[in-house]
Design a binder for these strands. Structure first.
Lengths: 191, 191, 191, 191
DNA sequence: GCGTAAGCGAGACGGTACGTCTGGTCTTCCT
DNA sequence: AGGAAGACCAGACGTACCGTCTCGCTTACGC
């Protein structure tokens, strides 16, 4: 790797990206156990101090990558929402969580939140909360437009739609193929 | 604590229980971060070697406590299963996972499974698998008896019923009160 | 290096010696700058924690080696002291300080004492003080026996005899060959 | 401190002096450990970069102050040298080394020379060497004038006269009051 | 009834990673 | 040129646990 150009007294964007990518790569390649600050620093070609200067802990690094990657690879549909766009979102969600490296980051952060209340808090504030807000908007918009008639309030609806997907991903079981269809049919259905 | 009576060349059951309880207590009091073998040994008044002699790692300790506690506090209903017994099971499951210390152990092991494939494997083989078997039996028995007519195959049904509960517990959100009722009504319902 | 035999729950004498020798070697080979706890640990094949368990700091390691090595390689003469035995001691002192690795340790500790009052204190209490006591005994014994008639009180005599040797060693100048003879002749002389 | 007048594109003499004094003060107040380039810069009201621009390292700063201060406060006697002027020089030397802040700098540089060969080299070339030259001239002039008849060659004489003083200062022992007199009497004496 | 075998508390050991700190270099901006 | 500020790499610091090992003891079993 060529020595990166020094940025003087401004934050070095290259270093920031190198760290995010190194964290991502290490997580995928060596699991959370291999994700040490020491290893990230070495892989990114960065001093440990540079990491600690900008991130309180390694989960904050993961959070940053997750936020950026989710926006890119699992966008909330922008079309006027219908049962169909929601179905498509669920399918994308399932793919994200099982196949995308960023999905692995999501599962890791859910996991780490169980071990560490501070992680749980930040994870909520910076990821789960904002994300849920957008998803809720999607549900209520579809409801208001008469596209769907959910059997449960919006948040409960989302828990029921996403919960099984996440649960399957966490327990490493395949996500049943008919799951999205059935849930949408029975829980958002006309009657 | 009085020095426990030495058991000679037989495994010391008291030591075993002390370790399990120490692990449980430490998890509740100081979280997974405070759950170190060193701390368990000190709290249980046991040598580290005694722990390593009987458990490959600290998650195996948790697994042992979880198995014993789940059998005691979240038994599979033995009555001939109906929509009602299943509903009651879901409610008990929700309470277990949000209020019982053993529920915290369950969430912790789900979490740790994300970080460690070996943990994931053992967790499946010794807990999730056997448990799922019994739950599946419950579902198929109810189906065969004509008590319920699930919209999905048995495993998918269980994922849909339990997934949202676990997901809410993991993300620390309240479990919607109408959730069990609605899911049972719409997904196991007569039509 | 073959793995050293573990000593169980007793302090491992081999490890202790390995640390002392590693420190000595590193000082000679790479100077005080290369003498880090990290390097000592690596060279001795010992964990850092083992070093911190037994020595408050790296200068205490040096102090231990110095004490043991001085006793071995620069013993206080045991014969009834005369002008001749004192002369021989001075010569041995000069060799020790210029040629022996342990002499380098001595110079290093004198140096480090300038930088660090705590070092100065320990160095005095554990090395300079006891050593001076024995040397003073040597001088007074010789005086009492009528073998020498010093022009100065015992401690001043020792400062005058040893000071130039140490000073030359510190400033890296050769120790004048006639120095010991002349000093003994003029300052301990008969008249 | 009033902002110093900027000197444009010439080296700022005020800044230079501020650095020297700051280094001196810090050494006396906080010891060598507290003498960091960072601290010097802050105390002198100077940018770190300015220091690194002009001095390779902090010992070079000390060397500069030592040279200037020694010339001022421990001048080589200019009168035709006699036993008396030499005695007076020794007394001044003893005071310098035990009481003068610059004496502390001298001891510090002797110490640092043990840790760092590069320091030792510069220290010799810029301080010890030139100084010794002048002192040697003093001795030989006195000898040639018949004022003294040293028992040892000039350099050895100086080692014997100054060595004990430096040694006492380094080991923090009092310098015996009769030392200078006795040494001069016995070693530079008429017989 | 005594030797053997195993379990036990204790704690030292070689390691890994932690999060903190300092040192010296570099860059930008302003005076 | 020089001040101020601060990011950066490098790597040592002392700490916490890891999992392994040996010690010295105690008990239970079987010859």
């Amino acid at each position: 790797m060529p020595p990166r150009t020094r940025s003087g007294n401004r934050r070095d964007e290259t270093a920031r990206l190198d760290v995010l990518h190194a964290a991502d790569d290490l997580l995928v390649e060596h699991g959370f156990g291999g994700l040490t600050v020491e290893a990230i620093a070495k892989r990114a070609g960065v001093a440990k101090q540079t990491i600690y200067r900008w991130w309180p802990s390694k989960v904050d690094i993961l959070l940053d990558t997750l936020i950026e990657d989710t926006e890119k690879r699992l966008p909330i549909p922008t079309d006027p929402p219908t049962a169909d766009t929601i179905r498509e979102y669920l399918r994308a969600y399932a793919r994200f969580v099982t196949e995308d490296p960023a999905g692995k980051v999501l599962l890791t952060l859910i996991a780490e939140s169980q071990h560490n209340p501070a992680t749980a808090k930040t994870f909520h504030e910076r990821y789960l909360g904002p994300r849920r807000e957008q998803e809720r908007a999607m549900i209520t918009a579809a409801t208001d437009a008469g596209e769907i008639t959910p059997k449960l309030p919006p948040d409960a609806t989302l828990d029921v739609l996403l919960g099984p997907i996440v649960y399957c991903a966490l327990t490493n079981s395949p996500i049943p193929r008919t799951l999205a269809n059935t849930l949408i049919g029975e829980l958002l259905g006309p009657r």
